[in-house]
Design a protein around this nucleic acid. Structure first.
Length: 283
DNA sequence: CGTCACACCTGGCCGC
DNA sequence: TGCGGCCAGGTGTGAC
C-alpha cells in the first residue's frame, strides 16, 4: 500500500502525538509481523521518550531518548493511527480494538498509536540510533528522491548499461528509494516514457527529465495526503486524495489524458506486477 | 553482478 | 449464499 508519499503523510500525522511524548506501555498482541519482533521490544519501549520521528524511504524511524531507534515499515496493508485527542486536535475517542491491531503504544499525553496490518508484511525493529544507517533494511537503499543526492547525472549513470525495463529500474530501491508501483507508473506517464523501455536505452536527456518529474509527482501526492485505495489511511483515519488525480494507475481502458492523444490506458504485467500506461504517447 | 520467479499473508471482488 | 480464482500500495531470498 504505502509508498513514500503515504509514509510521509503518516509520519506527519504521528509526529504531533509522538514527538516529546513518553511511551507508558506497549501492547504487543502477536509476536511478529513479517519477522519476529526484536528481543524484549515491549520492555525496551516502555518508559522511553520519543525525541524525533524521521522517515527514510518507506520506513518511519522513531529516535528514542535511550539511544535506540524504532524502525517501522507498513508493508502492503499497514496502518498507523492516532486516537485519544492528545493535543485537542483529533475529534475521535479511542475506537474499539480491531482485528489485526498488532501493536498499540500508550503515550503519556493520552494518545494511543495503533499499528494495524492485516497482511502482516509490515515490520518493526529496534537498533542503536548511531548504527541506524547500517541496518540491514536501510543500508541497501539508494538516495531519497526528494534529496540532493538524487540528481540528473546520478540517474543517468545508474541507468547506463541496464538491460532491465525502466519500470523495474525505478522500483529498484537501491537506485532510488521510496517509489512503488503507483508513482512509477505516474512518473513514467508524465515523462512520456514507456514502462517497457530498457533503462539503458533511454537518451540521457530523457532520463534527466525524469528526475524533476519524479520529485513533482511525489510532492503533489504528499500535498494531497497520499493515495487511498484499499487500506491506506492518514494517521487521523482520514483518506488521502491523490488517487483522484491518477493519470494512468488503475485507469485501464479509459482515455489517455494527454491533450490531443486519442490513446487508451493499457495494463500490462511486468515482473508480476501491473503497469498502466498509454502506448500511444509513452514511448 | 543482473535479472527474475517466488514467497510471505489476508481480504475484497467477480463470476459461476 | 458459497466457492474458486484473481487481484492488491512491498521486498527479501534463492536460482540461474
Amino acid at each position: 500500500m504505502p509508498e513514500l508519499p503515504e509514509v510521509e503523510t503518516v509520519r506527519r500525522g504521528l509526529a504531533p502525538a509522538m514527538e516529546g511524548a513518553v511511551i507508558l506501555s506497549a501492547e504487543v498482541n502477536r509476536p511478529d509481523l513479517r519477522w519476529p519482533f526484536p528481543q524484549g521490544m515491549a520492555e525496551r519501549l516502555t518508559g522511553a521518550r520519543v525525541e524525533r520521528l524521521r522517515r527514510r524511504s518507506k520506513y518511519i524511524l522513531a529516535d528514542l531518548d535511550r539511544g535506540e531507534t524504532l524502525l517501522i515499515h507498513l508493508g502492503m496493508s499497514g496502518r498507523m493511527t492516532v486516537s485519544g485527542d492528545p493535543l485537542g486536535q483529533f475529534v475521535h475517542e479511542h475506537p474499539a480494538a480491531q482485528k489485526h491491531d498488532h501493536v498499540v503504544l500508550h503515550m503519556d499525553n493520552g494518545a494511543r498509536i495503533t499499528f494495524n496490518d492485516p497482511r502482516r508484511f509490515g515490520a518493526m525493529d529496534l537498533m542503536p540510533t548511531n548504527t541506524a544507517e547500517a541496518h540491514k533494511l536501510l543500508s541497501v537503499l539508494g538516495p531519497e528522491p526528494l534529496g540532493n543526492a538524487f540528481h540528473e547525472a546520478y540517474l543517468v549513470a545508474r541507468f547506463r548499461g541496464r538491460n532491465t525495463p525502466v519500470k523495474a529500474a525505478l522500483l529498484d530501491q537501491g537506485i532510488v528509494a521510496g517509489l512503488g508501483n503507483i508513482y512509477v507508473c505516474e512518473a513514467l506517464y508524465r515523462a512520456r516514457i514507456s514502462p517497457r523501455r530498457k533503462a539503458g536505452r533511454i537518451s540521457a536527456a530523457r532520463v534527466a527529465a525524469l528526475v524533476p518529474i519524479i520529485r513533482q509527482v511525489l510532492r503533489d501526492a504528499i500535498e494531497a495526503g497520499g493515495s487511498s485505495l484499499r487500506d491506506f489511511r492518514q494517521a487521523d483515519g482520514e483518506l488521502g486524495y491523490f488517487q483522484h488525480r491518477f493519470d494512468v494507475y488503475g485507469r485501464e481502458g479509459q482515455p489517455c489524458r494527454t491533450e490531443g492523444c486519442d490513446g487508451v490506458v493499457t495494463r500490462i504485467v511486468q515482473s508480476g506486477r501491473s503497469s498502466f500506461y498509454c502506448p500511444r504517447c509513452q514511448r
